[in-house]
């Protein structure tokens, strides 16, 4: 189960990387990055899953005493929360940049933005 999720995550990352490397449209690159970010988050979640265990919440299903044997690793879930938010922040920033770039040159092609080089 964990392997399947992890493999999917890696696949998404590779798809995102491929998209970012081959698409010239800025917006498509940003979408590709979002896909890659999702893939990374999926991989993080997949690490820490243990067969036959349940969510790390102490309520009717799991009592405080047997939490140790009943819950999965809560740390990756906490990490992925942060990672998602950071991904959103960077995506928002990139979109704002794209808007500014488009305003100036009315082009969404990355090849048109090579004014600084060498």
């Amino acid at each position: 189960m964990a392997h399947l999720a992890m493999a999917t995550g890696f696949l998404l990352i590779l798809i995102g990387a491929w998209g970012a490397l081959t698409n010239r449209n800025l917006l498509r690159m940003i979408v590709a990055f979002t896909i890659a970010d999702t893939g990374v988050n999926l991989v993080i979640i997949a690490v820490g899953y243990m067969r036959g265990r349940t969510a790390p919440i102490i309520d009717g299903a799991v009592s405080a005493a047997d939490a140790v044997t009943r819950i999965i690793d809560p740390v990756p879930q906490a990490l992925v929360l942060t990672a998602i938010v950071i991904g959103v922040g960077v995506t928002a920033l990139m979109l704002a940049y794209t808007y500014r770039l488009f305003e100036k040159k009315r082009s969404l092609d990355i090849r048109d933005y090579t004014d600084l080089k060498g």
């Binding site: 970012a20 890659a36 920033l93 770039l101």
Partner: peptide, 15 residues
């Protein structure tokens, strides 16, 4: 455009 190039590479780095 310089900033955008930076963000592109940073995404790969973060992954």
């Amino acid at each position: 455009s310089a900033g955008f190039k930076y963000l592109i590479v940073s995404q790969f780095i973060s992954v």
